[in-house]
Design a protein around this nucleic acid. Structure first.
Length: 134
DNA sequence: ATGCTGACTATGT
DNA sequence: TACATAGCCAGCA
């Protein structure tokens, strides 16, 4: 239609849509379990947006820190990856309080503590090596 | 639109 | 095992 106006995002304000998806998913992670940024990305339907998941958590509103268990999100190597070492320490303390253990090198055994939502289908996406060539 | 940043990751050495 | 590198992509200026 000629006169059709733009789709326009009627969103009043607050966190952008992608960030909200991240927060909603992280809220589901139970005490004593952890997930990786990449896992969260895949679970919300954005399998290649692991970095953006980190960005979303970094901008977690103070009003949500008590509702969204941000400390349960780790890097795929099992470490607390913050640029600021202070928060990495806070994260570790919080996790240890809920029973998650770290090894001598400060890493979590993801095979033991990783969480996976029940009966959830993750979007099947070709691996990077598959999509790459040609 | 364009360019940059970064709580990421898979891959190669 | 550890480090470097190159993709990746949402948000923001």
């Amino acid at each position: 239609m000629p006169g059709a106006r733009k789709p326009v995002p009627p969103r009043a304000s607050g966190p952008p849509p992608f960030h909200r998806l991240v927060y909603a998913m992280v809220r589901r992670v139970p005490r004593g379990r952890v997930v990786t940024y990449g896992q969260v990305a895949g679970l919300i339907g954005h399998p290649r947006s692991a970095r953006a998941v980190g960005t979303a958590l970094q901008s977690l509103p103070r009003t949500l820190v008590d509702v969204v268990p941000w400390q349960r999100v780790m890097s795929s190597s099992g470490v607390c990856s913050h640029r600021d070492g202070f928060w990495a320490g806070v994260q570790r303390d919080l996790l240890e309080q809920e029973g998650v253990t770290f090894d001598a090198r400060g890493r979590i055994d993801l095979r033991k503590f990783a969480w996976a939502p029940r009966a959830t289908r993750s979007a099947k996406v070709p691996s990077r090596t598959e999509t790459r060539s040609r």
